[in-house]
Simulated scan of single mutants.
Amino acid sequence: MASTGSPDGWTYTVRKIDGDIFEGTTRGRTETLVRCTLKDVAAGVGMSTTFGTGLTKSTDTAFSAYYAQAVPTVCPDLRAADADIRRALTAAELGWADFLKRGRMVVYPPGTSYEEDAHRTMRLQEQNAISAVRLDAQELPDFCSEVERAFGEGGRVAPGLLIDRRRKA
């Protein structure tokens, strides 16, 4: 691959090492890439990969909440726990703004308040989560069961954000 619009230009070379293992090189740096298996995709259901886990819990929380909110578009038997999702999203946005303030981070575009940046960041998390739901649903044959394990009662990602409509309250 090569950059066509960057004034500095760059190339990214990918070499297949074995099966689903690749090596990518750019600007003298080499990284090993491994194609995910269905088991890997299932393990990552509802978890963000865009910010890197651990930057702050607020972006991870927002991604997971938006992910759960989007699930019913592909799993009609599952319903989003709207009030819990709203609480999680409010806490995430306030947490991100606080993270920016405490670290005196530079926000973009210049002149943007920390709160405006936090709001924009949450919209990006929403877009990423909606896209992830669509892609995960295409990849995983048993997607709806996987998300119920991640977000249902006792879920491993964000328990209680999805409710199975087939179960009596």
Score class of each variant (00 low, 15 high):
I85W: 00
A91L: 14
A91Q: 13
R87S: 10
T90F: 05
V74W: 02
D60S: 07
K57R: 08
L100P: 03
T50G: 12
V74K: 00
V71A: 01
F99K: 11
G52V: 03
F51T: 11
A68H: 06
E93G: 13
A81L: 04
Y67M: 07
A68V: 09
A83H: 02
D77V: 05
T59A: 12
D84R: 09
K57M: 15
R86H: 04
A65L: 14
Y66F: 14
D82K: 06
S58Q: 08
A92W: 05
C75T: 00
Y67V: 01
P72G: 00
Y66L: 07
T50L: 14
Y66G: 00
G54M: 04
T53Q: 10
L55Y: 11
R87Y: 10
T90G: 06
D98K: 15
T59K: 00
S58E: 14
T61I: 07
A97V: 15
K57S: 15
A80V: 09
A68F: 03
L55C: 14
S58N: 08
T73L: 02
Y66C: 06
A92M: 07
L94D: 09
L55K: 07
D98F: 12
V74A: 05
A97P: 13
L55W: 12
F99R: 09
A81T: 07
D60M: 03
A62N: 11
E93V: 07
S58A: 15
A81N: 14
L89M: 06
A92R: 03
F51W: 12
T50M: 15
C75M: 06
D77Y: 08
L94R: 15
S64P: 06
T59V: 12
T50H: 14
E93P: 08
D77G: 04
A97K: 15
A81Y: 06
L94C: 02
F51E: 14
T90V: 13
A81Q: 09
C75H: 04
L94A: 11
R79W: 00
D84W: 03
T50Q: 11
F51V: 05
V71M: 05
A88W: 01
I85Q: 00
A68K: 04
L78I: 06
F63H: 02
D98S: 15
S64F: 06
L78Y: 03
T56A: 07
T56Y: 13
T56Q: 11
V74Q: 03
A65Y: 09
D77T: 10
A83K: 12
R79N: 04
T50V: 11
I85N: 01
I85L: 00
T73A: 09
T90M: 08
R87Q: 05
P72L: 02
